[in-house]
């Protein structure tokens, strides 16, 4: 498709440039054609979102109001029509997409893989689940997100997480959350007997943890640059 700027006004420099757009060629009956579009959308919702769409009305003979209705129907489906071609200019009202001319067919290079190829590049998991206890001397480092431990974290063991740390057993070792500079990360545990807690570089050692909290469910978070440790129930 070509966009031609009117060259009469030279106050603003205008240049022509062609772009690739999807072309819709509606056929009669329009209602059935719209149903076809709906079916496509049902398979891959949002497939047309943000895509430049051009309506080619050469195959149909629609009145001005019919065109307006079609553009409106597409808009309801979140399909924005960039321009219209293959129709007399006088049928288009002022508030309708502009008439385009000089379009050429080309191969559409998909900027995103087809929907079925989606699972192939699944986003990296942003949490890590450990179903067995973390033993003394083991160090679990997961900088991409949260770490959840179903068992206990032994004395002398270490959990390092980019996000929050959840321990459903007793936390006896060291837990360091938000290591990538995430002050919103927290540490939760079913029983707190930790040797050291750290969030985003701020830490507290076992000695500084209030004795009344020991052996109870607790969470630790950052308030400004002080670490708060409070019971969970």
């Amino acid at each position: 498709m070509d966009v031609r700027a009117d060259p009469t006004r030279q106050l603003v420099r205008l240049r022509g440039r062609s772009y690739v757009a999807f072309v819709f060629s509606p056929v009669v009956p329009i209602v059935e054609w719209l149903a076809e579009i709906d079916a496509t959308l049902a398979r891959s919702p949002g497939f047309f979102v943000g895509k430049p769409i051009v309506l080619d009305l050469a195959a149909v003979d629609l009145s001005g109001s019919a065109i307006a209705h079609l553009v409106g129907s597409l808009q309801q489906r979140s399909i924005r029509v960039l321009g219209i071609e293959g129709v007399d200019e006088d049928r288009l009202a002022a508030d309708m997409p502009p008439l385009l001319t000089g379009g050429r067919a080309c191969v559409i290079t998909r900027t995103e893989p087809p929907p079925k190829a989606g699972p192939a590049d699944k986003p990296k998991p942003n949490s890590l689940l450990l179903e067995s206890p973390v033993r003394s001397g083991q160090s679990v480092v997961f900088t991409d997100g949260d770490v959840t431990v179903l068992g206990s974290v032994g004395s002398g063991a270490e959990i390092v997480a980019g996000g929050s740390i959840h321990v459903y057993g007793t936390l006896r070792g060291r837990a360091m959350a938000g290591v990538n500079g995430n002050p919103a990360a927290r540490i939760y545990c079913q029983k707190i007997e930790a040797e050291l807690l750290a969030i985003d570089g701020y830490y507290q050692t076992a000695e500084e943890i209030d004795v009344s909290l020991r052996n109870r469910p607790a969470q630790a978070w950052l308030q400004g640059d002080t670490m708060k440790i409070t019971p969970l129930n």
């Binding site: 973390v134 003394s136 001397g137 063991a157």
Partner: peptide, 16 residues
């Protein structure tokens, strides 16, 4: 006693 238990925990980790 605590020192023995912690060392055992470490060994269990190695067994795993």
């Amino acid at each position: 006693e605590v020192s023995s238990v912690r060392d055992s925990d470490r060994i269990i980790g190695m067994l795993d």
